[in-house]
Design a protein around this nucleic acid. Structure first.
Lengths: 187, 187
DNA sequence: GATGGTAAAGGACAATTGTCACAAAATTGC
DNA sequence: GCAATTTTGTGACAATTGTCCTTTACCATC
């Protein structure tokens, strides 16, 4: 099971068995049931979660009570409220489970220790964050440059099979349209 | 002039004079005139540019020929085509100067060397990328959750004084609306 | 298999935004 | 300073999207 984390790190940098054992010791395993919250708005965010299995979503609820999906986190994704985690402030996002999920989480303190002690891990997190940044920039471009239909097709590429796992109202919320508009696009 | 780079790095991690001299040796100074391209779509992207002065924009031109502004880069910002830079592939973005601009640029090769040789720099880039990632996530939220007027107000907060330096058509393009729509919002 | 709850589709209408056209204002280059 | 270009604002209309509502379909659970 922790093999998934090792494989994930080794896509970026190879590790010895000893190194991986040491790295793993900084993580904690935790299971969540469907519909349970991992992070709720207002919480202090101690951890970043690596998803072993299941499906979670990160979302924001605006003043009008509307939910906006920031991302879906499937196997091998990281999920948290990054701003609150890195700045050690209160969450403005909610993270909850769309399916039963298993995670390995790491506190910011442990993450920083790890980065200090093993430069490979600092390298890993730097590369990983860069990849995330690039993906965000692409999503921004899709939001300002694509219409709803094009964004929908882009989403299907990025998350194949998601449609079978997630209500369309959440897909719509990820795309920034209402579920009625999404329904008109696909009919 | 290179003091700006030092100050910028030292917001995240303190440096000795020797360290900074060494770091600076990996950067190259370059001036650009207004309207000149720093990166053109299709170019291989060798460098990441730290802006000492002036104003640049990063943008994408879609198949219909419309331009979408990804970001405005003022003093103390970094600008490049991150995907093409980090993956050493061809640019899908254009970067050009809205004003005469001065930059210090670094190649990917030098950046990676620097990160290897001075862990403080790996730390610096990791933190900097994290900040950029968090800012991107917020912009995504503003794009899916805010209407055009709210996004406009959010932009003004983020880039005070930008309105006086940039044509409104580019502001509109950054917000993901037409210039006519923006004009109606502000009148 | 019935039941309650959730999800999805679609119609009617309102609001927002885009498109096109034109004129006024501002800026730039000579 | 003047002409040319660019930028901006506005009106008319079309297209898209949002809102509200009803109906139907699909499940989970007992």
């Amino acid at each position: 099971m922790s093999d998934k984390l090792r494989q994930h790190i080794e896509e970026i940098t190879k590790l010895t068995d000893e190194e991986f054992e040491y790295i793993l010791s900084y993580f904690t395993y935790r299971k969540f049931k469907k519909n349970h919250y991992v992070i709720q708005e207002g919480d202090y965010v101690k951890n970043d979660y690596f998803v072993l299995s299941g499906l979670l979503k990160s979302s924001h609820t605006d003043k009008k009570g509307k939910t906006h999906v920031v991302l879906f986190a499937t196997e091998n994704w990281w999920v948290s409220d990054p701003e609150a985690y890195h700045n050690q402030t209160k969450a403005s996002l909610n993270v909850d489970c769309l399916e039963d999920s298993e995670t390995l989480y790491i506190s910011l303190e442990n993450r920083e220790k790890l980065c200090n002690e093993i430069q490979k891990m600092e390298y890993f997190f730097r590369k990983k964050t860069t990849t995330g940044y690039v993906a965000s920039q692409k999503r921004i471009l899709s939001l300002i440059g694509f219409n709803a239909k094009e964004r929908y097709e882009y989403l299907l590429q990025q998350y194949p099979g998601l449609l079978q796992r997630v209500p369309k109202s959440l897909i719509a919320s990820y795309l920034g349209v209402t579920r009625e508009t999404l329904s008109r696009l696909t009919s």
